[in-house]
Amino acid sequence: MEQITNFLSMGNYGAYIWTAYLLTAAVMLGLLVTTLQRLRKNKAELAEFQTIQNSTKQSGHKEETARP
């Protein structure tokens, strides 16, 4: 127990050290998470467009074959 509190207090610099590390973790995780979220959103939208395109292509195809 004492070992843990000793480690956390970091020779009385604990507040500065842990804030610095937590801030770094927050910024790096934030960058990673927003990047991944955007990728997922873009992928989803692209898939949507592609299914629309495929369906219109198929229906357009049918129309053409139905015409003559």
Partner: peptide, 8 residues
């Protein structure tokens, strides 16, 4: 110990 901030 404050030198540990250096590593980030």
């Amino acid at each position: 110990e404050s030198v540990r901030i250096m590593y980030i």
